[in-house]
Structures are given as structure tokens and as C-alpha cells.
């Protein structure tokens, strides 16, 4: 029997799994080794619903590291690295498109 989650998944191309890091909310991407990377370029990419489902299960089993995992459409560079395709993921990868109010912030 197909789970509700599987029914919802419509995979129409390269897809990566992304989430927010528990400790600070930073955007992270699931890697082929089952870990998390800050770089979308290191994300593992799936192209079938079955594969995406498997990766999501891995991601969701690690919610003490990253939370809110979901499947995000990506494109691939000629070298095979994932890059974001929609505005939401471009902003998650690149940060706000605006320059925030300028005030001396604490050292990063």
C-alpha cells in the first residue's frame, strides 16, 4: 500500500533533500554518505520517487541533527553538482536578497 507521503511525492527531475540544522537553523543538504553539508553542491541527488522516499527516511531519522527535511527540486551543473532551481531554494542557499539594516553586528 502506498503511504500518503509517497502519494504526495511527484518527482519530475533531479531532487535533493534539505533541512535546517537543529542547533542554529542553518540550511543543510543530505549527502550521499547520509550526513549533512552546508553546500548544496555536495547534496546527493535522486530522480525517482522511490529513491527520494528512501533519502527522506534517512534524513528524518536524523532529526537530532537536522529538522524539517523535505525534497527540493534542483538542477545539475555539467559537473553533476546540484544547484537550486526556484527562488525559495535560491534564497535558502544564498541568503536574503536584500541588504539588511546596517548596524555593527557581533563577530560571526
Amino acid at each position: 500500500m502506498t503511504s500518503p507521503l509517497q502519494r504526495k511525492l511527484k518527482i519530475a527531475g533531479p531532487t535533493a533533500i534539505t533541512a535546517n540544522r537543529l542547533a542554529d537553523g542553518v540550511v543543510v543538504w543530505l549527502t550521499a554518505g547520509g550526513g549533512w553539508s552546508l553546500s548544496i553542491g555536495e547534496a546527493t541527488v535522486a530522480t525517482t520517487a522511490e529513491e527520494v522516499q528512501r533519502l527522506l527516511a534517512i534524513a528524518q531519522s536524523d532529526e537530532n541533527t537536522a529538522v524539517g527535511a523535505y525534497a527540493a527540486r534542483v538542477a545539475l551543473t555539467p559537473e553533476g553538482h546540484a544547484i537550486p532551481v526556484n527562488l525559495r531554494e535560491r534564497i535558502r542557499v544564498g541568503g536574503p536578497t536584500i541588504t539588511p539594516a546596517a548596524s555593527p553586528a557581533r563577530a560571526a
Binding site: L22, A23, D24, A101, A102, S103, P104, A105, R106
Partner: peptide
């Protein structure tokens, strides 16, 4: 709080509150 825990600014909202956008959970 904006300076020590965030990125040096806050955002006042339509419900008379303020939001800090970059705080670490810990």
C-alpha cells in the same frame, strides 16, 4: 539582544512586536 545574539537589527511587526531573525537555538 540584536547585537549579542542576532545580526545587529530587529524587525518591528504589524502586531507591535519585534522579531529577531538569526538567533541560535542554544
Amino acid at each position: 539582544v540584536a547585537r549579542r545574539y542576532d545580526r545587529g537589527y530587529g524587525h518591528f511587526t504589524t502586531r507591535q512586536n519585534i522579531q529577531f531573525n538569526w538567533i541560535k537555538l542554544a
